[in-house]
Amino acid sequence: MREESASEIAENFFFVPDEFDHQSGLWPVRFGSNTAKQGYNVGPRSIPYYSLHFVRNGQVEFDYGTGTVQLVEGDFFCMLPGHSYSYRMLPHTHPLQMTWIAFDGPQANRLMSWINIDLGAPFKQKQPAPELQLTLEQLLRSARGQHPSHKLKRYTLLYRLFEQLCETPAQEELELTRGPNEWIPKSIEYMKTHYGEPIGIKHVSDHIGVHRAHFSKLFTEHIGINPSDYLRRLRMEQALRLLQHTSRSVLDISLSLGYADATSFTRAFGQYYGRSPSQARLDR
């Protein structure tokens, strides 16, 4: 809905979460954009949801309770639920233009932490990014439709927006800031989830964002077994369970555990247990 008042020309789109939305982790509440007029001033006010405001042009002064900051094109601020904020267009500047994306859901607080927004500093000063502006424009366009395809488009774009707002640190910085107590459990969970796929240790190290050699060394030190042997153990223990408790063929089991064929599986099984899959099945 496009409306003009004494202080702005604004367009707003409002959403009411349905059962599908509540079953997800994040849902839209309100999208909009404006062109402010001289004297534009909002607040103090609080809202029960999250609202990201992106500056497209001009300058805005944002008062977040414990401080005040002036934001320009490319910057954004966030109104966090239950807290009071004010913002205003600075006088004698270019017309202020903003786009806002309001949302809620159980994932919202985690997403805020991922983009480094918190109560002490609910804003970011960034260089304008064309791809981010494109996503905002697409979000506004998606708000005009009510078909399920439009809903799915809004979800896709909303997550894309957060992906673009995340600042990805360099590989070396990741390894310095995240110790093995954080990424070793993640590597184990990855292997337990995907040992049935044709994955190797390079897949695991890429998943956790740690250099392969560094990962293998520290994994072995902490777990007492190298990651290749750990992955092999997962596969062999599952193979033995399937052989002794199901009637599935050796080929079926081989392909279900990431092996290219029954021959390579039989060879690996024999090296691990000292007997063939057929002998292991007879021993049940």
Rank of each mutant, 00 (worst) to 15 (best):
P185I: 06
E175K: 06
G209S: 05
P148H: 05
W183D: 09
S187L: 04
C166R: 14
P180V: 04
L139D: 05
R144A: 13
I115S: 02
T135N: 14
S142E: 05
M191G: 06
K202Y: 05
H211A: 13
T177Y: 10
K202H: 08
R160T: 15
S149L: 12
G209Y: 05
Q107R: 10
W114L: 15
E163V: 11
I201A: 00
Y190A: 04
I208C: 01
Q146D: 13
A143N: 04
L134E: 12
G209L: 07
N116G: 01
Q138T: 11
T177K: 08
E175S: 03
S187C: 03
A170Y: 10
T168I: 15
D118Y: 10
H194R: 12
P180C: 01
G145P: 03
P122M: 06
S142T: 06
S205L: 01
E189K: 13
L165Y: 00
N181R: 10
P130D: 07
G120W: 06
T177W: 10
R154G: 06
Y190V: 01
R154D: 03
S205I: 00
Q107D: 15
P130V: 09
T193C: 08
L174N: 12
Q133W: 07
L111E: 02
S149Q: 09
H147Q: 14
G120C: 03
M191P: 03
T193Q: 14
H194P: 04
A170C: 06
A121Q: 15
K126Q: 15
M191N: 03
P198R: 01
E182V: 13
D206Q: 11
T193L: 12
H207F: 14
S149N: 08
P169G: 01
L139A: 07
